[in-house]
Amino acid sequence: MKPEELHVSSLIVHVNIKKVDSIQASINLLNGAEVITISPEGKAIVVLEAPNQKQIMDVIDNINEIDGVINTGLVYHEFEKQQA
């Protein structure tokens, strides 16, 4: 049986502070994404979990498409293989 993977990433997402509420809600609706905090300057810390790297990249692409998102930077990425 093929081992399953768990990918965990953290991001800093620079956002337009005037749209922070809608951006946070939109990110939290994405599968495996959670906004941890947003600074008064508009820097959001986001954690992602997914079964593979492609899904992590897809969520990052979706975040970048949200109105008011200025830039997304990957800070950390780790994965572990798990036996099913």
Rank of each mutant, 00 (worst) to 15 (best):
V46F: 08
N28R: 04
Q24C: 10
K19P: 02
Q82R: 10
L29Q: 15
I70Q: 14
N62A: 15
I23C: 09
E34L: 09
L48C: 06
F79D: 05
I56N: 06
E80I: 11
I17D: 03
E5P: 00
K2F: 12
H7G: 00
I45A: 14
E41C: 05
K54R: 14
K81M: 05
G68P: 05
G73V: 13
L29M: 14
V13W: 06
I36E: 12
V59C: 11
E65D: 15
I66C: 02
P40W: 10
I70A: 10
S26Y: 06
Q53V: 07
G42A: 08
N64I: 04
L11M: 02
G73L: 12
K2M: 13
E80A: 03
N16S: 10
Q82H: 11
P40A: 13
V46W: 07
K18V: 08
I63H: 01
P3E: 12
A84E: 11
I66W: 04
N62D: 15
K18S: 13
I60H: 04
K2I: 14
P3C: 10
E4Y: 11
M1Q: 07
V75A: 03
P3F: 12
S9W: 00
N28G: 08
L30N: 06
H14E: 11
Q24R: 15
A44M: 04
V13K: 05
Q55C: 00
E4Q: 12
N28F: 09
T37A: 05
K54D: 15
I38S: 03
I63Y: 01
M1G: 15
S26E: 14
L6I: 15
Q83F: 14
I66T: 02
H77R: 09
I23H: 11
E80Y: 02
V46H: 04
H77I: 00
I17M: 12
Q83R: 12
P51M: 10
V69C: 01
H77N: 10
N31Q: 12
A33C: 09
E49F: 03
M57L: 13
A25V: 04
A50F: 11
V13D: 03
S39G: 03
D21P: 00
N62Y: 09
V20M: 11
G32L: 14
E41H: 12
V8Q: 03
P3G: 13
A25W: 04
L11F: 01
H14R: 08
V20S: 07
I63M: 01
H14A: 03
G42R: 10
I36R: 14
D67I: 13
M57S: 06
D21F: 06
V20C: 06
N64Y: 09
L30V: 07
S26C: 05
A44R: 05
A44W: 05
E4K: 13
D61G: 08
S10V: 01
Q53A: 10
L6D: 04
K18T: 13
S22H: 13
G73M: 09
N16I: 01
K81R: 08
V13G: 01
H14Q: 07
L48H: 06
V69I: 07
E5D: 08
A44Q: 05
Q24P: 00
I66E: 08
S10N: 02
I17C: 07
I66F: 02
V15K: 07
N16D: 15
S10R: 02
E34Q: 09
L11T: 01
V46Y: 07
I27D: 08
G73R: 13
L11P: 02
I60Q: 07
L6T: 14
I60K: 07
V46S: 04
V35H: 08
V46D: 06
V47S: 12
D61A: 12
I23M: 07
N31Y: 10
S22A: 11
